[in-house]
Design a binder for these strands. Sequence first.
DNA 1: CCTTGTCCCGACCGATCGTTCGGTTACTCT
DNA 2: AGAGTAACCGAACGATCGGTCGGGACAAGG
Lengths: 200, 200
Amino acid sequence: MTTAKRDTYTPETLLSVAVQVFNERGYDGTSMEHLSKAAGISKSSIYHHVAGKEELLRRAVSRALDGLFGILEEEDARVGRPAERLEYVVRRMVEVLIAELPYVTLLLRVRGNTDTERWALERRREFDHRVAELLKAAAGDGDVREDIEVRLVTRLVFGMINSIVEWYRPDGRGMNEREVADAVAQLAFGGLRKAGDGRG
Amino acid sequence: MTTAKRDTYTPETLLSVAVQVFNERGYDGTSMEHLSKAAGISKSSIYHHVAGKEELLRRAVSRALDGLFGILEEEDARVGRPAERLEYVVRRMVEVLIAELPYVTLLLRVRGNTDTERWALERRREFDHRVAELLKAAAGDGDVREDIEVRLVTRLVFGMINSIVEWYRPDGRGMNEREVADAVAQLAFGGLRKAGDGRG
DNA sequence: CCTTGTCCCGACCGATCGTTCGGTTACTCT
DNA sequence: AGAGTAACCGAACGATCGGTCGGGACAAGG
């Protein structure tokens, strides 16, 4: 039956291995041979669980996108003053990014060579746009600086957040999700200079 | 003679075409066939000008690294108060990044699959380290906030700057290098919140 | 026992990979 | 004009690519 539990591979466990290799070697730089070596099964056996290489990519970026879009559906992201909703979304982005680190990492590196990659890029743009609107509303309230273009600020803040995938590693003794989220929020809203009180 | 000017390809003109394709498709996702189509010459002719695909990558990342390390040798980056030297370096990084956009873009995307890529990653880390020391000195002077770890701040600011390659396109009617550098410096040092006066 | 279906494998497919080679064109210099 | 050579090409190289195929091992249900 379909609900039976086996100690062999499932599409999910295979995915976690594949995503790790994708992030180390790059998607295009990873062959099915690399995946079979990393997973410990033969190349042809992979096709018993998933349709192919691109399905693994699709499953991975879907998981990342679900996590990000899920933020926008949370109550604190939907109701309240835009500036506060924005800060909440920024913090949650960091948390989700860390919680789903390998999947988001892969999402952020997609180039657009295949249909799956182009779909991922489109959905990413959609998410960016939603956050940009939040920032725009906050600027309309006079809660954030207006001397820099909204679109530019959005891109820079996204750049700062997304760069986390380039260095954060869950060592155990490192920072946890909350600490990183605090640092990002403080730096993004308060800036590098000492004068700012950092709010709270 | 070697100084003769031809209207055919040189390693440099070929490089500019190759880097553009590398950035569109990714290095691993680009075949020599793709390059020959984009350059308008046959695949085998490329090997008359360069030793192979990896040499094109090495030339490209070398150019980007030379631009970045060149900043650290400029006078304003070497003498003066660390906090001011830091702000100068940040602004110059943005300018160099935009001036050498395709080359820096490629540099920031290498994964480490070949010797060339690993060498590029090592030199990048060296540059990051040099800037981190500058930030550390500025923190020692009490000129920047110390409530966030120096290494973390460095990474986040680098993330913000480096993200420029993901969206900046020299349209002509868009922002110029100086305007982007100003915005980055203002956001990095002054933060998103309105309270900050933005210094000057 | 035998069937059924899951899980896995080695061998192989056509296509494409980066690269090489022999040879032709076209320009420069004398 | 003739020699020399830089620039270029089509064809082909062995290797590897993502993916297919037929079948074997194994556990569960009858």
